[in-house]
Amino acid sequence: MEGIFAIWQRDVTKFFRDRARLFGSFTMPILFLLIFGGGLSGTMEGLISGSIEGGGEFQYIQFVFPGIVAMTLLMTSVFSSLSIIEDRDFGYMKEILVSPVSRVNIAVGKMLGASTVACLQGMMMFLLIPFLGIRYSVLSLLQVLPFMFLLACALSSVGLLIASFLKSTQGFQLIVQILVMPMVFLSGALFPVNNMPGWMDIIVKINPVTYGVDVMKKVMIDIDSLSPMIREAMGLNLTLFGRSITVAEEVLFMLVFTTVLVLLATLSFRRSNA
């Protein structure tokens, strides 16, 4: 546990000291928030109002904000795993490997460090809520934090697995960029993902971001106050095999996904750094 804590503390400390990284990680989420939340909100709300009676009660910015937070978690947690390759290049990883700390604990410490950093940046997005004209209760923001951390753990394990196989930062960035955008757009973060083609719906259902985004929306948005037609139109009723998925089932999926990915990542990490 001391080894895990030391690695976790190092990654968190690096996060607070690297101001350029702190600023840069907000660029794309804020850009998407301005484009989808500000530029397209009127269009989306107009389409809903025109096609569904009572559609004016829904704010699109309220729908997209949890997705933007999940996008921040995705980008930060995955790209934080790049530090594994950097540590290997600069010799820091060799110093850890010759220490009594097991390689499994090194991998777990890296995952927890990346997850913590991602959650901190996701929480910083909450500071924008007063300026967006939307309201979330303090209780809902507190309740969503454990789900944010769980999603960050799942996503950081993906980055950890990728980093354990690759030897260069260029290759890591290329692979991650190929994965990040599909995971964002096929998760329901920015627009509904219902009525997708069959092959695309399969990708949506195995995407961990899908379940993380859906849980965050169910916790942060007062879904019960929306009409069933609006919930259906905006994809707020996630289904699998024709039945609605509960929050408990979504949490279970993320737990299983995280456990499997961590096991695979630690095995690959041990083999590639032997």
Rank of each mutant, 00 (worst) to 15 (best):
L112N: 07
S168A: 02
S168Q: 10
L141G: 01
I106M: 09
L186R: 07
P130T: 03
L128K: 08
N105R: 09
F126Y: 15
A114Y: 07
C119H: 10
S137A: 14
F131W: 15
S102F: 01
P146Y: 01
M124D: 08
A118Y: 10
T169I: 12
Q173K: 13
G188W: 04
A107H: 05
L186Q: 11
S137V: 10
L142Q: 05
A154E: 01
I175E: 05
V108I: 15
S102N: 11
L186H: 06
C153K: 04
V138G: 13
S157F: 06
L141Q: 09
C153R: 04
M124V: 04
L128V: 02
P130L: 14
V104S: 10
V117K: 06
L145T: 15
L155N: 13
S140E: 05
P182C: 09
M123A: 15
G171H: 04
Q177K: 13
L166C: 00
L139K: 13
G133L: 15
I106D: 00
G109Y: 03
F126W: 11
S168C: 00
G188A: 13
S156N: 07
S168R: 10
G109E: 02
V144G: 12
F149A: 02
V158C: 08
M123S: 09
F147G: 12
L161W: 15
L160M: 14
T116L: 03
R135A: 15
M125T: 11
F172L: 09
I134D: 05
V138F: 14
A107E: 06
Q173S: 12
S164W: 01
K110W: 01
M123C: 13
G188L: 11
M181I: 13
A154T: 03
S187D: 05
L155M: 07
V176E: 06
L145D: 12
K110I: 01
F149Q: 09
M183T: 12
N105A: 10
Y136M: 14
F185D: 02
A107N: 03
A163M: 02
Q170N: 12
G122Y: 09
V176L: 02
P146T: 03
V180P: 11
M124I: 15
G188S: 12
P130N: 02
F165R: 14
V108A: 07
L151G: 08
M124A: 15
S102R: 09
G188I: 06
V180E: 13
G109D: 05
L128Q: 07
F165H: 07
F185M: 15
V180H: 07
L166V: 03
I106E: 00
V180R: 11
V184R: 05
L127G: 02
F149N: 07
G113N: 03
A114N: 11
V184W: 07
L150D: 12
